[in-house]
């Protein structure tokens, strides 16, 4: 469960460039909800995800995850609860380290590192299984450096790392945008499967309207740091790409379509 209340974030405060990336936004994501977030460039989508993850510290407002107020907690404290995949495949992996070292880091997300051996046969077995699902041959490249992988392989690894130990919250920021259509489809398919399999609470940002309608249980449209439109499962199912595009153009109407359970 994610609760964002009256969240406000102004970048470059006190300068002529000052601009509210988040302008008193409210958002509630119930456990198991898979919310797709859309909105034009600069609407504040990445800032919202950053505020939930701790990469962005709010000026005002509150972020609660599973009933715990995490507003002031730094990213590394929240990491136990949250996994994140970024648009840039470089961002979600440690390029100079090997695939298996990256997977170990993913294992460390929800526990403290110890003085034990990092790479063991048992762990490698488990990691190989986790990677084999993608069908990209990554399971045979455990000891390769990540910088040798293609963007798609890297992003698959980043996703595998995010769901290796199912988080309470999964944040995806245009994570298929930089991939070719085929790889994007593979990564998206695995995303949807992992979310369903572990019943994850997830937020996914996308600019692809078709994708936005195809996956996810709810849809949120952002504009100028606020929620402009929320669609529940029924309304989302009834909407078309044309409906969404039309919504982009209409003035600030905060209609709530489709009652939420």
């Amino acid at each position: 469960m994610i609760l964002v209340e009256a969240a406000r974030k102004v970048f470059n405060k006190g300068t002529p460039d000052a601009r509210a990336a988040l302008d008193g936004i409210d958002l509630k994501v119930a456990p198991g909800d898979f919310v797709v977030v859309i909105g034009s460039n600069g609407a504040g989508k990445s800032t919202l995800l950053g505020a939930i993850a701790g990469a962005v510290m709010l000026d005002e407002g509150k972020v609660t995850i599973d009933g715990k107020n995490v507003t002031r907690e730094p990213t590394e404290k929240r990491a136990r609860l949250i996994a994140r995949v970024f648009q840039d495949p470089m961002a979600g992996t440690a390029a100079p380290m090997t695939v298996e070292e990256n997977l170990l880091l993913a294992d460390l997300r929800n526990r403290k590192p110890g003085f034990g051996r990092a790479l063991t046969a048992g762990r490698r077995e488990r990691w190989r299984d986790a990677l084999a699902r993608f069908g990209l041959g990554l399971e045979n490249r455990l000891s390769d450096k990540v910088e040798l992988l293609s963007g798609g392989q890297r992003q698959s690894l980043a996703l595998a790392m995010a769901v290796l130990n199912p988080p309470r919250v999964l944040l995806l920021d245009e994570h298929t945008a930089a991939l070719d259509p085929r790889t994007a489809a593979i990564v998206l398919e695995h995303t949807v499967r992992a979310i369903a399999e572990h019943n994850l609470t997830a937020l996914m940002v996308t600019h692809n309207m078709r994708q936005a309608l195809e996956v996810g249980s709810h849809l949120v449209m952002m504009e100028a740091g606020r929620v402009k439109l929320t669609l529940g499962p029924d309304a989302k199912a009834r909407s078309s790409v044309e409906d969404l595009i039309a919504r982009f153009e209409t003035a600030d109407d905060k209609i709530l379509l489709g009652a939420r359970a």
């Binding site: 701790g54 990469a55 590394e76 990491a79 136990r80 994140r84 440690a94 880091l105």
Partner: peptide, 8 residues
């Protein structure tokens, strides 16, 4: 930037 997201 990734390290904190992994709890490090």
């Amino acid at each position: 930037t990734l390290a904190p997201a992994l709890g490090i």
